[in-house]
Structures are given as C-alpha cells and as structure tokens.
Design a protein around this nucleic acid. Structure first.
Length: 493
RNA sequence: GCACGGAUGUCAGAGCGGCUAUGAGCGGGAUUGCAGAUCCUGAGACCUGAGUUCAAAUCUCAGUCCGUGCUCCA
C-alpha cells in the first residue's frame, strides 16, 4: 500500500514520491516569535510531527527543517511595547516555543534556521531577481513583479491572474507604497527610523517576509524539495510568493513537489482570534489538561479539516486517553518473562487467544493503511481504540503464560502505534511510577481512612444507608471512594 | 464578487461505488448492595433535486446552506 498525500497544488491525493530514493526533504514554515504559541501552532506542528514520524516509520530518512521568523513588524512593535530589546524578545519566545512543543511530545526538527542568519542569501536572491527582470527597486524597497511571471500565478489558490487583474481597481495608489502593481510583494523593505537594519545594495533595510523561506529552504535543500508544509492561511500570499521567487530565481519548477497544508482551529465554533477574546495559548491549556490529552484531542481529526476546540472535545479526549493509559498500564504490569511465543493469529479461530492475536494484527494493518492514506490520524486512532477494547477483554480473561505473552504483545503493539507514531503514550516509567502524593491528601488521610473503615464495617453488615451516608460525607470532603476487588480505594476529585 | 473547502446519527468525526468506522451520550444485559470502572449488546445518519449504475453516503450535474482566503496570521 503506497503512501498517498493530498497535494494542495494538484488539489488531489497523489502517490508520494521523493526526488532521492528513501530521503524526504521537508520544510515547514515556522512561527514568528513575537508571542507565546497558541493552539493553532500546536495543531500545525503536531500535524507535521505526525507526518515526520510516519515518514520515518515508513523507512524514509527525513530531513526536517523548520524556521523561526525572528525579524518582522510584529516583533519590532512588540519589542517597543514591552520595552525589550527585540533580540531578547526573540530568544524568550524561541525558548517558549521549544518548551511548549516539547510538552506536546513533538519531536524536534533537524534544523531551526533563523531568517536573520540568511540576510546575505536573501539579498543575493533579490539581486538576481532584479537582474532577471522579475523584481524592481522602488523608493521604499524592492518588489517582486508578479506580472513578470503570470503563468505562475494562482497555483495554490486557483485564482487566475486575469480575474485578479479585472478586480484590482485602483488600490495601488492608495497604499502609499512603491509597488507598481497591487499584486507585487516586497522582497526588501527600506528602513524606517529606529528599526533594526541591514546594509544592502538598496540601502539600509530588512528583508520582506516571503523571501526568507526561499532562502532558507534553498540553503538546506537546493532548488527543489519534496514537502513544503504550513498552515492553510499561508497558502496566499506566502506560499504563492515562494513559488514566484524560488522558481524565477533558479529556473527549476516545481520548487515543491508536495504542498501540504493543515486546517485551522476554531474555539467553540468561532475562529480563534485575539479580537474575539477566544485566544488559547498552549500554556493555558496545558495547565488544565495533560499535554498528551491535548495532543490526543488534536490528532483525533484529520490534519486538513478544521477542528473545533471546546470542552467536550477535551473531555472525550481525556476519557479515551485514560482508557489508553489504563490498558497500557495493565499490560505492563502483566507482562511475563520468558513466556513461550504466542501462536500465529487467525481471526477465524475458535481459540480466543489465536483469534485475538489475529484481530490485533488486522488492526495494526488498518492503522498503517490509515496513516498511508494522507496521514489519517483519526482513522488510526479508531484502530487503536478498537484494539484497546480487545486487549482489555483478553487481559482480564487470559491466565498464566498466555497472559504474560499476550501482555508483552499488547505493550509492543501500543508502543508501535500510539507510542512511536501517534506520540500519545506516556513512557513506561511515567505509567508505572507511583503517582505523586498530593499534599492535601496527607492532611486528611487519617480522617478518610477512619471513615472508610467505618463504611467497610457498615457494608459488611449490609447497612447500605450508613455506608452511603459515609460516602456522601467523604464526597463533601472532595474525596471519591471506589470499591474494587482489592477493597476500597480513594482519591481526591 | 472571485477562489478553495465542507454539509454523515444527539454530539464529535472517519469512510468516498456493493460489506454502514470510532468515541462521547442514550437504552438493555453481565459484574457490583448501590455508585464507579470494565465487558457484552441495542437504537440511531449519510443537505436537496435530478442523472450515471445491476448497485451510490460514496461518481456527475444543478441548487441550498456553512466555513476559510483574496490585508499580518500556523
């Protein structure tokens, strides 16, 4: 089953191919580091983390490059507002980025180039584009002339240049910029007073936004590469601009073989935006829920679909994730040593163990098929959840060596799917570690133990009214009691 | 206006020509004094209209509604 991916430019699922056999060069647009990362960033880098992981699982050697945009209007403005040196602001936010993404179990890219390290390259490309007649210097900077390569227009958005021409109107003059045409975009911006600047053939200034990705992807991969990713919103104009710049500069086309774009995050049905006040940072959420639960909730939709984040979604994810961890934990605790190997699986078998092993194999195949189908993590999650039910049932019915061997199989199965691919499994150590005692628990432990003892006495004499009354009393203290085969256990709500 | 993407049970969300996921919620059952957890099981859906086909949620056409982009944005 070959890997198929949805390519934005071709607008359909295509067989995934690479320029060099076995190697994938992947560039994903990174963040502009002027603030903390929000849920939208999480979704984006999570999507490409899954893609990264699955490509590696499929045997590719992945070179994953993700940039930081470390100079930009927003950074300059924020630095002024907060009276911080812009370099310091950048460092802070890059550190936050790593911390947030690490918490979500997002594997690091191989390289994180920063655009300020590539100003010379951007100047070279810009000069070359001027020489080739694709760009021109104006009063306030250098612009790319979109009309110089009209055949490249609209490859990602499907807009025809004629449609845009006819609808253009007289907006150009109003903007006050030196653009000759409103479709043109800046390659170099002349310095304004007080801004960080670099020297260039066109005077002091700084690079335009779009050119940085061209410079950095070229630096890592050359004129063409396999995957370019980013948020849906970058389609236009950012990625369109990259096609213009890159292809006009190098003469190679297409610059990108597979364009992958992730969908957006809505909050309670509305677009997440600062003006609506429904802006969730990763840090905010991770304070309330386990980061792996957040991760689970976000991969529980296809990466291209919009996702609506809300309490219910997190609650569902919480529940499913607990099931996953519970089964994993049970399997870890039941793992046998030196057990005889499991029989070969056969879904038709009348022997439960044989049948179950067969079912798990089938679900593992289904998992792979799902991931091969444009990284369908939702479907892949469904396979894992299906497997959990099967495992849970078998782990409570098998005995002896069968149980030990089956538990080992479950552990491996889960680590191979939910673990290394989906990245939602905690480590073995985390799962088996005794939970850290909440200091509040210690304070009330004696009182609680005493009440539970009374309740046990009441229960053994079938005084249900009294038993329930004690449970009520405990509930008022914020304590929940659960009766298990090993006796009652308690915890804070 | 132009472009792109959607419309699937109560909700979330896969499938994209024949076999109707998955989860939450709800109904029944097992276990339990009850609750919780777990397992078994049930009900319940493919926006509208037309067409293609032996067969359509799945393909084609038309329509309706929704989202997003066309300005910085993951």
């Amino acid at each position: 089953m070959p890997l198929r991916v949805h390519d934005t430019r071709r607008r359909e699922k295509v067989d995934f191919t690479t320029m060099n056999p076995g190697v994938v060069n992947m560039y994903v647009c990174g963040v502009t580091v002027y603030d903390l990362c929000h849920l939208g960033h999480a979704r984006c880098y999570l999507a490409f983390d899954l893609i990264h992981r699955w490509l590696e699982k499929s045997g590719y050697d992945v070179n994953y490059v993700q940039n930081f945009t470390d100079i930009d209007d927003k950074i300059i403005n924020r630095a002024i507002e907060t009276e911080t040196d812009w370099r310091e602001l950048v460092e802070q936010n890059i550190n936050s980025y790593y911390r947030d993404m690490d918490s979500l179990n997002i594997l690091r890219a191989d390289k994180y180039p920063r655009c300020t390290d590539f100003v010379d390259e951007m100047i070279d490309i810009t000069s070359d584009l001027i020489d080739k007649g694709h760009a021109y210097a104006a009063e306030d900077g250098v612009y790319f002339s979109v009309e110089s390569a009209p055949e490249k227009y609209g490859q990602l958005t499907g807009q025809s240049i004629d449609a845009v021409r006819s609808g253009a109107g007289g907006r150009v003059g109003d903007s006050g910029s030196g653009k000759r045409d409103h479709k043109d975009f800046a390659l170099w911006k002349s310095a304004k007073p007080g801004e960080p600047t670099w020297d260039s053939p066109w005077g002091e200034g700084r690079p335009g936004w779009h050119i940085e990705c061209t410079a950095m992807s070229m630096d890592s991969f050359g004129a063409q590469f396999d995957i370019h990713g980013g948020g849906h919103d970058l389609l236009f104009p950012h990625h369109e601009a990259e096609i213009f710049q890159g292809e006009c500069h190098t003469g190679c086309s297409p610059v990108v073989h597979h364009w992958l774009h992730n969908g957006f995050v809505n909050i309670d049905g509305e677009k997440m935006s600062k003006s609506l006040g429904n802006f969730w940072t990763i840090r905010d959420i991770v304070e309330k829920v386990d980061p792996l639960v957040l991760r689970f909730s976000l991969i529980n939709a296809h990466y291209r679909s919009p996702i609506d984040m809300n309490e219910q979604l997190l609650k569902d994810a919480q529940k499913n994730h607990s099931r996953l961890v519970d089964v994993y934990k049970a399997a870890l605790e039941l793992m046998g040593v030196n057990c005889p190997p499991l029989p070969h699986g056969d879904v038709q078998s009348a022997i439960p163990l044989v049948r179950s092993v067969g079912l798990l194999e089938k679900m593992a195949q289904g998992f792979a098929v799902a991931m091969d189908d444009d990284f369908n993590s939702r479907e892949a999650c469904a396979k894992v959840l299906g497997a959990l039910r099967e495992m849970s049932k078998m782990l409570s019915t098998l005995e002896g060596d069968d149980l030990g061997a089956y538990a080992v199989h479950c552990v491996e199965w889960l680590e191979d799917t939910a673990g290394s691919v989906l990245g939602v499994l905690p480590t073995r150590e985390q799962v088996l570690a005794e939970p850290e005692e909440d200091p509040r628990k210690a304070q009330i432990a004696d009182k609680v133990e005493e009440l539970i003892e009374q309740r046990s006495i009441a229960r053994s004499s079938k005084d249900w009214a009294k038993a329930d009354a004690i449970r009520e009393e405990l509930a008022l203290m914020g304590v929940v009691v659960t009766d298990t085969a090993q006796g009652p256990i308690w915890d804070l709500v």
